[in-house]
Design a protein around this nucleic acid. Structure first.
Lengths: 220, 220
DNA sequence: ACCTGAACACCGTTCAAGT
DNA sequence: ACCTGAACACCGTTCAAGT
């Protein structure tokens, strides 16, 4: 929809229109000429407001980083609250895949994760973890979330591209462990798998700290 | 370096030159005209050999997927062999960041990980894990590796972009837990942190299976 | 302060024409 | 079978000129 022609063009209007285009079809589909057509102005007007295409994308990224600030842990135990933070992160990442990818390209992933990181630190402390071990636990959860969302999206985008996968697992491992073959062929419920994975990881991390379960600190 | 002008242009020559350009400066820097100049031919000759730019990139991706096949687990215990597989994956991912990103964009990440996945399944079995729980353990390790490499590269590429990070951790949490603040401000030894994270995760996953450490199976 | 069209260099791709 | 130059539509960006 072209904007109303009464008022003057705004930098925010440009950003909004650009964000809409990127959210739908990715940054490659955002051309200055298409954006101008969408806004009902000359291509060159956009340059006055945002400088150039790169600055425009940078501004979109900056917006996204700021929007990722809200983190509301919920639950009775630290472990439960960590899981809730992880679920929130996953949801936010899944809502803006293209923008998140752009944040990543610009090296701002860590800054984007700062609020979540602080929440995780708080919960690790509440669970009795301290120092370098708490830091490792925080990072382990972050990586788990990022990795899961990436692989998950990958699978969704390319559902028919793995014709040999079931065959491979079917041929070799099916008789040894059919349940495993089935589980690896397709993740029945991504949300459930996600929560279970995070829960297992958190459980492992917290248990290690308490009892030195098998072998104690890691040498070398 | 322009190729020798004696022999006819080969599809493989085109792929090699394209791969070299992509490895150095990423896919965006690969233009058909630059590639032609590099090969000492007309732009249009390339089209005869590879169809178009998209097919050329697809071919590079296909190559990369095939090259990621070699996985050699080493170590005495299943846990040690799992860690060695993870280290090998990390090394291979770090060697070709641009190509790996292209593989991911095309939805082939899972296919690329198949050989490693099978090795991980084998070790999980050796460690006594079966069925859906073994499948979850395999995926947890995969995600851990992918997530770690992504965040790690991100930090390397944008070393000066986090001016506020130390301040944030310094101001708030430093007195409560200075060791943690330090650890989160900069990862001293990425390889060490990686191995320790994977080892902790594997430890947690395997321990859970044996003894039902805290709470048993996950409801809901 | 804000907007415009013309012009430039670059891009991927097609095609008819060569050998 | 393999290679070529000309031509097309598209792109980001600059700039002098308008109000």
């Amino acid at each position: 929809m072209p904007r109303s022609t009464r008022t003057a063009l705004t930098r925010d209007e440009v950003l909004d229109a650009a964000a809409a285009l990127v959210k739908q079809h990715g940054p490659a589909s955002l051309t200055m000429r298409k954006l101008a057509a969408e806004l009902g102005t000359a291509v060159t007007s956009i340059y006055w407001h945002v400088g150039n295409r790169e600055s425009l994308l940078d501004a979109l990224v900056e917006r996204t980083v700021e929007e990722m600030g809200a983190v509301r842990p919920a639950g009775r135990t630290p472990a439960a609250r960590i899981v809730s933070v992880a679920r929130g992160l996953r949801r936010e990442l899944r809502e803006r895949p293209h923008l998140i990818a752009m944040v990543h390209e610009r090296g701002l992933t860590e800054r984007m994760f700062l609020p979540a990181q602080r929440a995780l630190v708080h919960e690790m402390h509440a669970a009795g973890l301290r120092g370098a071990r708490a830091a490792e636990a925080v990072r382990a959860v972050q990586f788990q979330v990022v990795g899961y969302v990436l692989v998950e999206r990958n699978r969704e985008r390319a559902p028919a591209q793995h014709p040999g996968e079931e065959d491979l697992w079917g041929a070799d491992a099916a008789e040894h462990d059919p349940a495993l073959a089935r589980a690896l062929a397709r993740p029945a419920d991504p949300e459930r798998l996600f929560v279970n994975s995070v829960r297992a990881l958190v459980d492992g991390l917290l248990t290690r700290a308490g009892g030195a379960v098998s072998g104690g600190p890691y040498p070398q």
